[in-house]
Simulated assay, not measured.
Amino acid sequence: MNINFNKNNDGLVPAIVQDNITNKVLMLGYMNEEAVEKTMDSKLVTFFSRSKQRLWTKGEESGNLLNLVSIKTDCDSDTLLIKVKPEGPTCHKGSDTCWNEDNNSNYGFFTELETIIENRKNNASEKSSYVASLFAAGINKIAQKVGEEAVETVIEAKDRNDDLFLNESADLLFHYLILLQAKGFKLSDVENVLKKRH
């Protein structure tokens, strides 16, 4: 890895720290050549403290370590992207990130869809909402819909029409998200089970 430590006169490069699983940006620190070497050797993220003028391993006092997964340079080789597995909160003030955000998984559009389903569930009086009507009908109806969509997905999987297969897959996933919330869960709960198995 060719890092340009000479762009600034201080011999430091910014290091953006990102959770390897959630992709949340956790913090920004600075590294010199020695900090990078120590990080690579120890597999614990180590920075150069500009205020203390020395190396410091994140979590050396708090125990909230950053376990190294990977280090990449940007296109100019003067900024680092460090992917980590954090142990505990990253910010010295006790929050998950230095921007006071929770370090939770975000599934893009699926997270947005979960929010919409949750709103429909909590406002089940909306008669015009298909999702609200499913929640009003109860767990048996929701589970039945998941079963129906699963069978239709399997049938289309054995055919050669990719559009039909993808549409049935979308229906299955959509109804499964509804079933999860009917049982009081979300995708993150399933993710946690898979993480433990992994």
Rank of each mutant, 00 (worst) to 15 (best):
Phe5Met: 08
Asn6Glu: 15
Asn6Val: 07
Asn9His: 14
Asn9Leu: 15
Gly11His: 08
Ala15Glu: 06
Ala15Asp: 05
Ile16His: 03
Val17Asn: 03
Gln18Arg: 14
Asn20Gly: 13
Thr22Val: 06
Val25Asp: 05
Val25Ala: 12
Val25Lys: 13
Val25Gln: 14
Leu28Ile: 13
Leu28Gln: 03
Leu28Asn: 04
Met31Ser: 09
Ala35Ile: 07
Glu37Trp: 06
Glu37Arg: 15
Thr39Lys: 12
Ser42His: 13
Val45Asp: 05
Ser49Lys: 10
Arg50Trp: 08
Lys52Glu: 12
Gln53Ser: 10
Leu55Pro: 10
Trp56Phe: 15
Gly59Leu: 06
Gly59Asn: 07
Glu60Cys: 12
Glu60Arg: 08
Glu61Trp: 03
Gly63Tyr: 06
Gly63Met: 07
Asn64Gly: 05
Leu65Gln: 13
Leu66Thr: 04
Ile71Thr: 07
Lys72Gln: 15
Thr73His: 00
Cys75Lys: 02
Thr79Cys: 14
Leu80Glu: 01
Val84Ser: 11
Lys85Gln: 13
Pro86Trp: 12
Gly88Glu: 10
Gly94Leu: 07
Ser95Leu: 05
Ser95Gln: 11
Asp96Val: 02
Trp99Gly: 02
Asn100Lys: 08
Asp102Pro: 07
Gly108Ala: 12
Thr111Ile: 03
Glu112Arg: 04
Leu113Ala: 04
Leu113Lys: 10
Glu114His: 01
Ile117Pro: 03
Glu118Pro: 00
Glu118Val: 01
Asn119Ser: 14
Arg120Gln: 12
Lys121Met: 05
Asn123Glu: 08
Glu126Val: 14
Val131Ser: 02
Ser133Pro: 02
Leu134Ala: 01
Phe135His: 01
Ala136Cys: 12
Ile139Val: 09
Asn140Val: 13
Asn140Ser: 14
Lys141Tyr: 01
Ile142Leu: 04
Ala143Phe: 09
Ala143Gln: 14
Lys145Phe: 00
Lys145Met: 10
Val146Asn: 09
Glu149Tyr: 03
Val151Lys: 13
Ile155Thr: 09
Glu156Leu: 05
Ala157Glu: 03
Asp163Cys: 00
Leu164Ala: 15
Glu168Leu: 02
Ser169Met: 13
Ser169Cys: 13
Leu172Trp: 06
Leu173Met: 14
Leu177Ala: 07
Ile178Trp: 00
Lys186Phe: 04
Asp189Lys: 04
Asp189Glu: 11
Glu191Ser: 05
Lys195Asp: 10
Arg197His: 10
His198Lys: 13
